[in-house]
Design a protein around this nucleic acid. Sequence first.
RNA 1: GGCCCCAUAGCUCAGUUGGAUAGAGCACGCGCCUUCUAAGCGCGGGGUCGCAGGUUCGAAUCCUGCUGGGGUCGCCA
Length: 585
Amino acid sequence: MNVFKDFRKRLLGLLDEMVAAGELPVGLDTARVTVESPREASHGDMSTNAAMVLAGQVGTAPRQLAPQLALRLGALPEVLTAEVAGPGFVNLRFAPDFWRVQVAEVLRAGTAYGASTIGAGQRVNIEYVSANPTGPLHAAHARGAVVGDALANLLEKAGFIVAREYYINDAGSQVETLGRSAYLRYREALGEEIGEIPAGLYPGDYLKEVGRALAERDGGRWLDQPESTWLPVLRDFAIDRIMLGIREDLATLGIGINVFSSERALVASGAVQAAFEELSARGLIYQGVLDPPKGKKPDDWEPRPQTLFRATDYGDDVDRPLRKSDGSWTYFANDIAYHLDKFRRGFTVLIDVLGADHGGYVKRMQAATTAITGGKAALDVKICQLVHLMDQGKPVKMSKRAGTFVTLRDVIDEVGRDVVRFIMLTRRNDQTLDFDFAKVTEQSKDNPVFYVQYCHARCRSVLRHAAETRPAAVLTLEALAEAPLHRLVEPEELALIRIMAGWPRLVEGAAEAHEAHRVAFYLYDLAAGFHALWNKGKDDTTLRFLAPDDAELTLARLALVQAVATVVASGLAVIGVEPVEEMRS
RNA sequence: GGCCCCAUAGCUCAGUUGGAUAGAGCACGCGCCUUCUAAGCGCGGGGUCGCAGGUUCGAAUCCUGCUGGGGUCGCCA
């Protein structure tokens, strides 16, 4: 339950009453009426812009309409004061009980607190990672993996039905190169001296294992065969081995992808041909010659007729080729078929999480999605900017040639899965991110992972302590939900409750914006509120959670503490991080 | 040259889809441990939201044009 949305409904009800009473005209557009918590705490608990939005429609001034609204709002039982302020805001202050009951709401809901129904069962498809099966996942893949996975969790919490997909690019020339590279390692495994890996092939050591495994399985049967015989075998064998490793790495990171789609299978099924015919039927295919890119003409440019998709009809900058000169489909053509396939499987909201180098790909894919689904599906693309790996403030040098690139596995082994997941959400996806091995494992307030975990651990610590000192007390969620919450009267306590009451609203906003990083920032704010209250108890012993001579007050505060732990756990679950019971290692 | 992203405190970044006097953290200065974990908390200084216009009750946020940084640019995926 979102208290802000809830109150907005009450407000709209009052507006209806005012219409009925003839105070307002019929047919008002209330779409832009908002109820939100003001930035400035002194402005109260909630604030509405209704007077400013409606004044124009009514034909009066905001400051004139606002007092009428304030009068009505002030008469509501839960509203303490309703004041007109600024250009026409109505600021509301609620009775403390309005907030206190939220603690019980949290405890009754448990970690499901914050769940929403705005998704209304709508089906969303999120494609993420989708790294080429030509090598192990490296550190940069972690970001897309976490961003996609957390977004999936978030949307599920908001009531959407979510599919998590990985598109395996197992068609095209790159996997052929992989097959040839693996063949070299295969011969090496059989004792041949292969020398330097030729340019154009993948030099990575990870292929040695692939070569050995194949030699073990098949012996020397491919040695004297022509490439046309062994290439498909080697290619498929290598893809399978590498995908196995990728799946393991994803599992280690806790990434919950449940559908792996093969590009090659898609092409083989005729889906690309079908998609092509669909576009043709819509009159969006033609033979034409593209202009060379302005200002930067490739050396080998020559104008030639191509099979083009009219992407410009849907907002792209140029029309895009669907066939290579050898007649086979371009990657783009295959991807159109894949997105159509998602739509045909019942998804109308499509999200692709892609790397920074795919920025130029967004417009054409959105154009194609709109075109081929007749506007019935929308594609949102989340571009993840680069991750700069650092250590002690200095960049970690990486070179594919020298083999010193850092794998995802390396990073997880070094700092742990929870740290990777949390840190990847401490920036908006379109902002570059520094990942400093020293900083992210530091146990200090500079490290948001630690800071949030410490908050949860402190809550648990208090509850453990309470259980030890009062063995008779029942401290289950159900019992604490019945605690005498009216004993929570301190401003810091009520402030903390207000933050918690904002969690459902945050979930809905973040889900609608497809922005999971907001959860990480929210948890930081919540933790700050708790740490502040904790330390108040150091200066003033009457503020401590455990009041030795007041069992009732203690129970109320334990309910508050348990609620904080619950909301933190609820948020961490979206990020995919395990809340810890204590920080001692 | 076209397109996309970014530009907010000295530094790293948020900013509730257009709201009020723009917020955190780091760094800097001062204060707080006989205590449920000081691995933390409080107070203070610090801003032309890159620049210039426009839209309206109201702009860091939306539109246009510039400046600077990154990415990308027909048959790689």
